[in-house]
């Protein structure tokens, strides 16, 4: 056991306790949390900074507004309902389509047909705070449903694959792509069963994936190889992620990016407590990379320079 502990430490594997005390508590001032915990604020900050985000169709903050939902989504065949202060992807409902004949029915991304009452119930749960971080009343965001890049079509089962970039003091240090599976019911969260695949920061090319704690080299539902996919707009993704440091003021932040077929990379959300499974996906500990950044850190670096440094410093081993 102590042997294992020593080995992990040597590899620079970061544990939850260390992440919480050394990174989150020291680098992420509490007052900035709303910037990432409340998606409404995140969105407006990102727009200010000139970063692309999915279009916001409307916000529902009170139970009485829930019945306006059909008006908000009128004219949209697909949309996403999200709690403004949700965590871990909970409470997100992705509507991909409407019923063919009955226009007041909606089809979720997993193919379930819901009527208006069922959707409104979900929205009112969101507003009631069922998915919010501390159970307090929340708002529901209704926004553009990303049409993901065909690149990922072969390696994801429904849902929207996204790219997670960990940004440490403004420098991207690790990244992975999260691929929804049947068992994650279209969600891109690793602990809900999505496949995570590390990304070579230098090349923007995927590595092997992990499912749960096991290594996988093909997508469990489609059977397609995961390794070697070239992420488009990689430079732009790294640079946008770096910018999130200035936007949020958080020294340790996880940036979730989706690539839209037509609109390119978009910032979906940010996370002040990004998970540690990314280390498994990259088969690499975070600790050594963080230490390297501490050595070469230069506050004068621009986001573009920081992205370049990340490409230079962190090729896959």
């Amino acid at each position: 056991m102590f042997e294992l502990r020593r080995k992990l430490h040597e590899k620079g594997v970061l544990g939850v306790n260390e992440r919480n005390s050394r990174l989150i508590m020291e680098l992420n001032p509490r007052k900035f949390y709303p910037r990432v915990d409340n998606k409404v604020i995140t969105k407006s900050l990102a727009i200010e900074a000139g970063m692309p985000v999915p279009d916001l169709y409307g916000v529902i903050s009170h139970q009485s507004e829930v019945r306006h939902l059909p008006e908000i989504v009128a004219g949209q065949d697909s949309f996403v309902i999200k709690p403004a202060r949700g965590s871990g992807g909970n409470g997100i409902m992705v509507i991909a389509d409407r019923g063919l004949r009955k226009k007041d029915t909606y089809r979720t991304v997993s193919g379930v047909l819901l009527n208006e009452a069922e959707i409104e119930h979900h929205v009112s749960n969101v507003v009631g705070g069922q998915y919010s971080l501390n159970g307090t009343p929340d708002s529901a965001l209704i926004e553009y449903c990303v049409r993901f890049d065909p690149l990922f079509a072969q390696v994801s089962f429904q849902g929207v694959p996204d790219i997670r970039v960990i940004v440490y003091r403004g420098y991207p240090v690790m990244s992975m792509v999260r691929l929804p599976t049947r068992s994650s019911s279209g969600k891109a969260n690793l602990h809900q069963g999505a496949v995570g695949a590390g990304i070579d920061l230098s090349l923007g090319r995927t590595l092997d994936g992990v499912l749960g704690n096991d290594s996988v080299d093909e997508h469990p539902d489609t059977g397609m190889p995961i390794r070697g996919l070239q992420i488009p707009h990689w430079d732009y993704i790294l640079e946008s992620s770096s910018k999130c440091y200035e936007v949020t003021g958080l020294g340790y932040v996880g940036v979730d990016i989706v690539i839209d077929r037509d609109l390119g990379p978009m910032i979906l959300e940010m996370n002040a407590r990004p998970g540690l499974n990314i280390q498994i996906a990259n088969n690499c500990g975070l600790g050594n990379r963080l230490r390297r950044i501490d050595e070469i850190l230069n506050p004068a670096d621009t986001p573009a320079e920081r992205a370049a440094i990340a490409r230079r410093e962190f090729p896959a081993v």
Binding site: L4, R5, L8, K11, V13, G15, N213, I280, C284
Partner: peptide, 10 residues
Amino acid sequence: MELRRFKVLS
């Protein structure tokens, strides 16, 4: 529990 979780990285 993390020792088990990250065992693959060792």
